[in-house]
Design a protein around this nucleic acid. Structure first.
Lengths: 206, 206
DNA sequence: TGACTAAGTTTAACGTTGTTAAATTAACAC
DNA sequence: GTGTTAATTTAACAACGTTAAACTTAGTCA
């Protein structure tokens, strides 16, 4: 058996290099600008070599999106004040998430853009989204159990997620109707939308 | 001066034909599938003729989007029970809008998709969006004036819009986390999110 | 050592796209 | 008809995604 196959590490490295190059190019010049040929040129390899590492362009972007989700999930976990009560935690996490979206609009667009191959085709993407969602649902459930939050945890979380998602999406797409910046909107949003869902009086320690 | 320029009507007609063909193709095969060349082939014209009617592909899609917005705005105006009080009207309009998004996900994607040329480049799109938004703000303002709704009308409307938009976006992108259908979510959504903003007790006549 | 073999990589090629420039067609004034 | 000019088509270029064939390379084994 001559010439051993590339080691897993080599494959992983090249995939990583392609992902990073794609991510940078995407942030710099947008989705359309990212082509295998440009990535290959940038990495100094043949324009068809990427096909040895990703089936096609969609698969490459799925990997880039997975990286985005991982960073997103890390930001959520890292910004979770676990020592606080569930309602205060949810408020804090809402701020973390909204801030993350504001500071990384390109990431947010990539994670949640429409006009993309159906998510159902990428189980690993579904899984990590589900993980992020479940992480939050678990906290809501604690609030429900403690009598601080009314309703079924998953439904409540869905509502809150949709509300936050709407705001972030409008922001990331530059579609906020004039007259408000995100900064002006985040606090009212938390009070008006997240607030009623999670209990109007957060035990916050500002 | 030989051979008169195309009449305004002729130009409008051809633009309309191109828009309609693009819209149908978009709905049938998605955004990427819509090319000038395919549209031209479908209309039996040369593949460069569309450039005489639209500067480029983005401009064509801006026109298609404008049509979408107009239908959307008509649905809102047509579904507005103007004889009712402001809170009941807003509830009804929220249902109209959510239903419209559910029944026309492709339209919704087109109107609000990220990964599109910045809206700021298309003043007519901004204008019609603003018109739709202002239409709703005016009703909220009536509620505020009548003491039925608390807060500044534009801000309240922004919140409600973001909430509804989040739900619709997730639906249109097929990104609703498992376990809920839109039908199951719309009523809780209205109660949980729109409700507190517009006054928890709508004067509804179901 | 050197031929064999299969993985890794590149080159060639096809069909498609957006877009521009040149060539052609068509309609009206004279 | 002839000339002029808008309308349209044809030709062309560069870039893209993708597949197939050619080539390179690094091991095994005689």
């Amino acid at each position: 058996m001559p010439r051993p196959a590339r080691s897993d590490q080599q494959i992983k490295d090249m995939r990583q290099r392609l992902c990073e190059a794609a991510y940078e190019l995407y942030k710099a010049e947008g989705y359309e600008a990212v082509s295998f040929r440009r990535l290959a040129a940038h990495l100094g390899i043949s324009h068809t070599l990427p096909y040895s590492y990703f089936d096609n362009r969609d698969e490459l972007f799925a990997a880039v999106r997975l990286d985005c989700y991982q960073r997103f999930l890390m930001a959520i976990r890292g910004g979770d004040p676990t020592q606080l009560g569930p309602v205060a935690r949810l408020y804090a996490l809402a701020r973390v998430i909204l801030n993350y979206a504001m500071e990384n609009p390109a990431d947010y667009r990539l994670m949640f853009a429409m006009h993309q191959p159906p998510l159902a085709r990428y189980p690993e993407l579904l899984a990590i989204r589900q993980a992020a969602f479940d992480y939050l649902v678990a906290i809501v459930q604690q609030g429900v159990d403690a009598g601080l939050i009314k309703g079924e945890a998953r439904t409540v979380m869905h509502m809150a997620w949709a509300a936050a998602h709407g705001l972030m999406t409008l922001h990331a797409a530059g579609q906020l109707v004039h007259g408000h910046t995100m900064d002006e909107l985040i606090e009212p949003m938390l009070q008006a939308i997240i607030g009623p869902l999670f209990g109007n009086e957060p035990e916050h320690q500002s």
